[in-house]
Design a protein around this nucleic acid. Structure first.
Length: 279
DNA sequence: ACACTGCCCTGCGAGC
DNA sequence: TGCTCGCAGGGCAGTG
């Protein structure tokens, strides 16, 4: 499922593939529920004739900037897929939307599980939207001191907290497990119980996980493809997410545990990531 | 304000 | 072999 590195990979693809192109027409598929705002017909009408002037990203949200000043905000959720193809490319079973470009190519959106969403935002709506998303882990403004301070005021378990997009942008289930493993922090540790050293290690582990994955074109467990339809390679380098319960920890050999935290399957090493002490 | 639960949706693997 | 069932999960609405 696309998290920050995968969305950033797609953004870079789109930046080189469609920047400067004009959207001639928007072709709606049978399922228009993927267009969250405004109504599908208005969405299509307002996009037609617009030139793409750039791309952007905030956490897992991808932006396509238009010369009208509006932005298309896209969230791929679990199985959303954006690809740039020639018109003779057959449409997949879960094709939902196509932006027909003036050079003949198409920017297509497909999504098996129909969780992904597109919305067209005015500059005001865009600014408002950005305030709902937490800081970017890869930006320098997020210092270890600031991250520690953010954790200090929160009593909930650290894993669901770092996956909360309003708290921190871009971390999903895969990189949460990877980073907590690297930083040797149990996923159920209350956020405010982390020491400064642990907070610092966690932020660093998130950054390393993201940068490594970016360098390998993202993680493809099953569905993820970039805008060229290619798989990522980072799945071959995951430390713990791809392991099953009972398989040995790659660091110490202790059998890996699997629990459910905030409805998400969670892997950790009970030796390297000791459980919080109950009060 | 914060924390937590249920729901959306389809494909796939396990079990019988 | 073919069926049913339950699981996978990001974000949002609703609840406490």
């Amino acid at each position: 499922m696309p998290e920050l590195p995968e969305v950033e990979t797609v953004r870079r693809n789109l930046q080189s593939l469609v920047n400067g192109a004009v959207i001639r027409e928007v072709e709606l598929g049978a399922f228009t529920g993927c267009i969250a705002h405004p109504a599908p017909q208005e969405f299509a009408a307002r996009l037609s004739g617009q030139r793409i002037t750039g791309t952007g990203r905030r956490g897992k949200n991808l932006f396509i900037l238009l010369d009208s000043g509006d932005d298309i905000a896209i969230h791929l959720r679990m199985t959303g897929d954006l690809t740039v193809v020639l018109p003779d490319e057959p449409r997949g079973k879960h094709h939902h939307l196509a932006l027909l470009l003036d050079d003949g190519r198409e920017l297509r959106f497909s999504d098996t599980r129909k969780f992904g969403r597109l919305r067209l935002l005015t500059p005001t709506e865009f600014e408002e939207f950005k305030t709902t998303v937490g800081p970017e882990p890869l930006e320098d403004e997020l210092t270890p001191e600031r991250f520690f301070e953010m954790l200090q005021s929160r009593g909930r378990a650290v894993k669901p907290l770092i996956m909360d997009q309003a708290f921190l942008a871009g971390v999903g289930n895969i990189y949460a497990d990877e980073a907590l493993f690297t930083a040797r922090i149990h996923p159920l540790r209350p956020a405010d119980s982390l020491t400064f050293d642990e907070a610092s290690r966690l932020l660093d582990a998130i950054r390393v996980a993201f940068l490594d994955a970016l360098g390998r074109g993202g993680t493809t467990i099953k569905d993820y493809r970039n805008a060229l339809g290619e798989r990522g390679e980072n799945q071959d380098y995951l430390q713990i997410y791809s392991l099953s319960e009972g398989e040995p920890c790659p660091r110490c050999g202790t059998p890996i545990s699997r629990i459910v935290v905030g409805q998400r399957g969670t892997r950790f090493c009970p030796h390297c990531q000791p459980a919080p002490v109950q009060a």
